[in-house]
């Protein structure tokens, strides 16, 4: 029968186990993952199982690395996300977190859009480093993503998005993530996408400031093709700041909504 070993087809005997396969092909492997699950006990393999064998500490070559990166994915996810194209509007606390989660998932193309540079007050919630201060967020984030998953395509645009350029900027994207800070920019992007790009999905966020309960942050399906994440009331304002935990909870609600849309799950 055929299985997939580190994503490559391999013919093995019927009834062979995961550990027997390991002993035949990669005896020194100490991580054994079967169909996305790290196994601790031997198990009989079935046709089309996906088995991944990893030797801890070894740096694999480029070709093998991509297969190993996705070993813990749910089977079937990777090949679908690889074909997806997602635009991210704003690379602050929301956008930098969304981009990294989608990059880790292997979304094939990300378009990263932001006009601004990294400054010190960004570091309390955005995925940048001290060494990025002064750099365009687009460039800094692209470099960070290449340290995580160099197998995806990243396009960057340093621009301020408004009604005049939104449609053109995202014309090749299927899903757009609204990750701005200002409520006017949020409303403007959502209005423009919904009216000018009716076939695209937009995943927006509103209300993630402060340290209120995590459980008030929700994902809702709103208007046609619009998903809204947040508690809808907690505004960033004097006396109520923006901090990593709630901002990244909201960002990853957005990222999971994007992943679900790519996989054909339209309900929340």
């Amino acid at each position: 029968m055929n299985i997939f070993l580190n994503e490559n087809p391999l013919t093995v005997d019927e009834g062979i186990t995961a550990y027997e396969t390991k002993n035949q092909v990669k005896k020194d492997a100490d991580v054994v993952i079967l169909n996305g699950f790290l196994i601790k006990e031997d198990i009989i393999l079935h046709a089309n199982d996906r088995l991944t064998l990893i030797r801890k500490g070894a740096i694999p070559d480029r070709e093998e690395l991509e297969a190993l990166l996705i070993a813990r994915h749910t089977p079937g996810v990777f090949h679908k996300v690889k074909k997806a194209r997602v635009g991210i509007a704003g690379l602050g606390g929301l956008g930098s977190n969304v981009a990294i989660s989608l990059a880790r998932t292997g979304v094939g193309k990300l378009l990263l859009v932001d006009f601004d540079v990294v400054e010190p007050s960004n570091l309390n919630r955005q995925q940048y480093f001290i060494s990025d201060i002064g750099r365009y967020k687009t460039d800094a984030l692209k470099d960070i993503i290449f340290q995580i998953n160099p197998f995806i395509e990243i396009e960057t645009k340093e621009m301020f998005l408004d009604e005049s350029n939104i449609e053109d900027c995202f014309k090749d994207m299927e899903i757009i993530v609204e990750a701005f800070d200002s409520p006017e920019c949020k409303a403007n992007l959502v209005n423009t996408i919904l009216s000018k790009c009716p076939d695209k999905y937009i995943v927006a966020a509103s209300g993630m400031a402060g340290y209120f309960s995590s459980n008030t942050i929700k994902t809702k399906k709103m208007l046609r093709n619009l998903y809204l994440v947040g508690d809808e009331v907690s505004a960033a304002q004097p006396g109520c700041g923006l901090m990593a935990p709630r901002v990244s909870i909201a960002a990853n609600h957005q990222a999971n909504t994007v992943l679900r849309l790519i996989l054909g799950e339209r309900d929340i």
């Binding site: 606390g93 409520p183 927006a204 505004a235």
Partner: peptide
């Protein structure tokens, strides 16, 4: 279920049984 653009806000008049959905964004990101 029809998106209303900003330039129609003054001219669209609301009727008895209209279903209105409003999303009001707050800042932060």
């Amino acid at each position: 279920c029809e998106l209303i653009s900003k330039d129609q806000y003054a001219s669209v008049l609301l009727k008895q049984d209209d279903q209105v959905e409003i999303i009001s964004f707050v800042g932060g990101g």
